[in-house]
Amino acid sequence: MLKILKYSFYDLLRSRWAYAYFLFYLILGFVLLFLNGDLSKAVITLMNLIIILVPLISTIFGVMYFYSSREFTELLLAQPVRRDAIFLGQYLGITGTLASGLLLGLGIPFVAYGLFQSNEIYDFITLIVSGLALTFIFTGLAFNIAVRNENRIRGFGYAVLLWLFMAVVYDGLFLLTLIIFEEYPLDHFSLSATVFNPIDLSRILILLKLDISALLGYTGAVFKNFLGTKSGIFISCLALLSWIVIPLWTFMRKSRKKDF
């Protein structure tokens, strides 16, 4: 599997967009920090951006990479290599590239600004960890879409729809439900609805970490009660982890049975 990972990486590092992704974060990080001069404000701005952008880029590049490496996959499948190794290697290749783009792109400006001397280091770590989790989650979901759709246009369509649903439509439906059922106690509903969307979950996690949950009013207090405790953090991390593991598992299962 390490060999596949090596060649996957090698192939990805030749394409320009991997560098563009890294440079984008690098420039963004520097601009935000040095023009703003406030670490926690920069973290909040980045949070708003990352929870939308990371899923979008991961989904699009995930589908794109899976389709464009189809030739490579077919070549490898006829070699004495385990099928699981081929597909896991490719998944780790693309997530590794995207994750290092994010980590280095934001890490370098923050370290240069003096992150290690500040108290905001834990906020920054929360931000990066959710960014990385979202990368793994949405690449996994994208691979699931790509392996099930031979038609590339349709695959791309589904990928964009998935992102749109998770990033925009879900929140709309969520709000709509809250308004329609405003007579009823909804804390448990909103808590579970949040857990079922990794984007919302990451957003709430970062907000709680930044200690601005008071802005969320009563619901914020409920969330803080739940997620602020050890078991709350444990449950939300478990939710994020299952968002990574379950799509990866279904993808591997499907790829094992696929005919080429």
Partner: peptide, 10 residues
């Protein structure tokens, strides 16, 4: 293979 598909960047 009948149709030779190779990674194009290589």
């Amino acid at each position: 293979p009948q149709i030779a598909n190779f990674p194009e960047n290589l």
